[in-house]
Design a binder for these strands. Structure first.
Length: 222
DNA sequence: CGGATTTGACCCGCGC
DNA sequence: GCGCGGGTCAAATCCG
């Protein structure tokens, strides 16, 4: 329960903090996902890459950097108010477009990715404001993961330099403009990349509508 | 028959 | 200004 709750918090903070300039807090690096990205307007950044394939796999990415970040963040542990203890995960390491606003924190043998602010690339002034986006990678045979919402496909496109098409979906709920796209990673077709854009104005609707008793999965991220 | 999917056309932002 | 490429539209088609 506590785990799910804070995962949801993470998700909400990603979406509500549209300019990504204020504190986003810490979140546990979860074993289900191999990467996180969040975006705003034109910018989409990789926040974290997880994990080594096996728990005992060697850490290949900038351990010294991670150590430095851990030390830095431990001196400003006030940020940990965002999330309390989480279930443990294996020994994952985070990396990404690291800058001084992102860090790794270890607490009780668990790893957290800290995002206190995002350094955005320069964003041109634009009239059209894109919805914030959230994207993750999963290893799955299934392209369209069941996330509790109902989607209608409205397009498919072959993107250059990839052999797998990208599919575009829209939430079927009236007035809900949430979109998602699904594609397979060119370098590793076992990986599915799912990108969500926007925020649902309603709760997940499965066929057998148990809206209140929604499972852990339905509110895992949104 | 109605809703979902397919798919080529169209749109539009961006870089050159 | 032009072409490229990604995103969307919508008519045709599929399917339960």
């Amino acid at each position: 329960m506590s785990s799910t709750a804070s995962q949801t918090m993470l998700n909400q903070s990603l979406f509500e903090d549209q300019d990504l300039s204020s504190q986003l807090g810490f979140f546990p690096i979860h074993s289900n996902f191999t990467s996180f990205q969040l975006g705003c307007n034109q910018s989409l950044k990789t926040l974290a890459m997880v994990p080594p394939l096996a728990a005992d796999a060697p850490v290949t990415l900038s351990e010294s950097f991670a150590q430095k970040q851990k030390e830095e963040i431990s001196s400003q542990s006030a940020g940990s108010q965002f999330f309390s203890s989480q279930r443990s995960t294996a020994n994952y390491w985070a990396w990404g477009e690291m800058n001084d606003t992102m860090s790794i924190k270890r607490s009780g043998g668990e790893d957290y990715l800290g995002v206190t602010a995002m350094k955005m690339k320069k964003i041109k002034a634009r009239r059209k404001v894109r919805e914030p986006r959230f994207c993750f990678k999963t290893m799955s045979d299934i392209d369209v993961l069941d996330d509790g919402y109902k989607w209608r496909k409205y397009g498919q496109k072959v993107v250059k330099n990839t052999q797998h098409p990208r599919s575009y979906y829209r939430c079927t709920q009236d007035n809900c403009r949430v979109k998602k796209r699904v594609e397979r990673l060119a370098e590793d077709p076992r990986m599915v990349i799912t990108t969500y854009e926007g925020r649902h104005i309603h709760s997940p609707s499965h066929d057998e509508d148990d809206s209140q008793a929604s499972s852990q999965f339905t509110n895992f991220f949104w």
